[in-house]
């Protein structure tokens, strides 16, 4: 599934991409004496699906949090569409068009599925305290986003559940809802933190299809994942982290053959099934 755009990209850590949407430099984050993330250079190709993998404790989630403003690094700068996002709040990162999901799903339990979706939409004047009093001022926008939510819910097979509380959904449905909710604001880029964690196998396929469909719509996807099958199936490019650093990059079918990658996995995480036949 590798696109041609990656043909010219060298298979090395911090490789430059032809059309990067995210560029990060010297991002360093440590907790006390413990270095969690130490990334020299990192680029994400626009319109592609990039996987971020690595053994447990490699700093993937921390790096994710740094890129989305949920955590602050000690040093470093990173650009999104050419604009620096250093020190920018998570909300502004999202408004800039980079929306994330969480490893532990954050479905808003005591709100209905539809309300969850509406909350995801941007540019709602009714979210202003004073405008909220006058329904005519926000009624039209509300209808617009409701229609949009219906479309997305149908696509994600959650339409029948739209009036249920989100708390009643299964783990996999929550993942779907979270992804659908992230799409309400028409993001340029979505960042999925372990989208397959805790999802039952029956739903995995449809989740994968949804991610591929995002790419077809021109959305850039960066995701953290443990499941190698999934990484091989859908990603165009794989970035491997270990001990906070990026140790390898490359197309999914070749990157795992890198000896450094194998060492990192074997050293930190014996039980990961890597050499797997590649199906």
């Amino acid at each position: 599934m590798t696109d041609d755009v990656f043909a010219s990209v060298p298979q090395e850590p911090g490789a430059p991409k032809p059309d990067p949407i995210v560029v990060a430099d010297n991002v360093h984050r440590h907790f006390g004496g413990l270095t969690a993330v130490d990334v020299k250079h990192f680029e994400v190709q626009r319109g592609a699906i990039t996987a971020l993998i690595g053994p447990n404790g490699a700093g993937k989630s921390t790096f994710f949090n740094l890129l989305t403003g949920f955590d602050k690094p000690q040093t470093g700068d990173w650009l999104f569409n050419g604009h620096s996002l250093k020190g920018v709040s998570p909300a502004k990162v999202a408004r800039a068009g980079k929306v994330r999901t969480f490893q532990l799903t954050k479905a808003l339990s005591r709100m209905t599925v539809l309300e969850n979706m509406r909350l995801g939409a941007s540019d709602q004047s009714g979210e202003n305290f004073f405008v909220a009093f006058a329904k005519p001022l926000w009624k039209d926008r509300e209808e617009e986003i409701t229609a949009k939510a219906h479309v997305l819910l149908k696509r994600f097979k959650l339409y029948e559940k739209k009036d249920d509380y989100a708390g009643t959904l299964s783990g996999g449905q929550r993942k779907l809802l979270e992804m659908a909710r992230a799409l309400m604001s028409d993001p340029e880029m979505v960042m999925l933190d372990e989208p397959m964690a805790g999802v039952n196998p029956a739903l995995t396929e449809s989740l994968l299809d949804h991610i591929v469909q995002l790419k077809q719509e021109g959305v850039t996807v960066l995701f953290v994942e443990h499941d190698m099958h999934m990484v091989r199936r859908i990603s165009d490019w794989v970035v491997v982290m270990a001990e906070g650093r990026i140790i390898a990059e490359g197309p999914p079918h070749t990157v795992m053959q890198n000896t450094e990658v194998q060492e990192a996995y074997l050293g930190a995480h014996m039980d990961t099934d890597l050499s797997e036949e590649g199906s």
Binding site: T68, F70, S89, P90, A91, K92, A94, R95, V99, R100, T101, F102, K106, A107, L108, S109, R110, M111, E115, L119, G120, S122, E178, R181, A182, M184, S185
Partner: peptide, 14 residues
């Protein structure tokens, strides 16, 4: 209400 349920989720939605 979103904040009541999970503020980080609401933050991630901008």
């Amino acid at each position: 209400k979103g904040i009541r349920e999970d503020e980080d989720a609401v933050r991630s939605l901008g």
